[in-house]
Amino acid sequence: MLELRLVQATLFKNVVEALGDLFSTAHFNSSRTGLELQAKDNSRVTLIMLLLRAEAFDHYLCDRGLSMGLNLAGMAKAFCCTNNDDIITIKAEEDWSDTVTFTFESPEDGDEISYFHFDFMVINGVPLEIPEYPESEYQAIVRMPSAKFMPICNKLSSFGDRDTVVIISVDKESVDFLSRGKTGTLTIFCRETQTVDKPKEPTLIEMKEKVSLMFDLRYMNSSKASTLSDQVTISLSSKLPAVFEYKITEMSCIRYYMLPRNE
């Protein structure tokens, strides 16, 4: 039996919306610790993982882990007409015919309740075991406001043809983004900033050694979940998938894993 409730549908709607236009299907796995969503596209160089811990829910009942393959794009379309302040309940039973029900209830009078039933689908390739590599495994870790990172991704797309590449280079005090497309190149330099009075604002760089990695621009854009979080942490290594992490609340986060392209 799985029964989860959020008294505000906003967070769940935003997550499904942010991911629904990038990944058509996703694997939901519920356990005692929380609800984990994994999605990957057929490029096989990116994977996204969202973890909403049980504490993030107002009611979390999961007596047996449930693994559900769902149509994320279909959910995003269905939920776009619900209200952010609706109460959302997610319910599934093992014995039911592989279906999960999302209930949206208007909070004040509860006079309107919408039941969305989604059938489970088989999704290849996910879920995957994602080891948590310690920070020491990465050559450089950059933390910056997502309000700063999102416009950078947009600018990098200004040359946005399909095969535009982005090179992210980290030095002691700066992180540079270079995008090279058919029509030209764009280089954006970001210096490290220290604004002690605004703890959420700074661009911080922890560099163990210089690193410069190339990514497909189209996957960089997928890390636009920044609307869900005020800070992005970018962990870079020439030996591991890069991680773009957005903490949504203390208990929840979204991580985009991206493999650098071979030079």
Partner: peptide
């Protein structure tokens, strides 16, 4: 060039 590795080289099927 080197064959592009895939994300599943780093993360195993659970």
């Amino acid at each position: 060039g080197r064959k592009q590795s895939t994300i599943t080289n780093y993360f195993v099927r659970s």
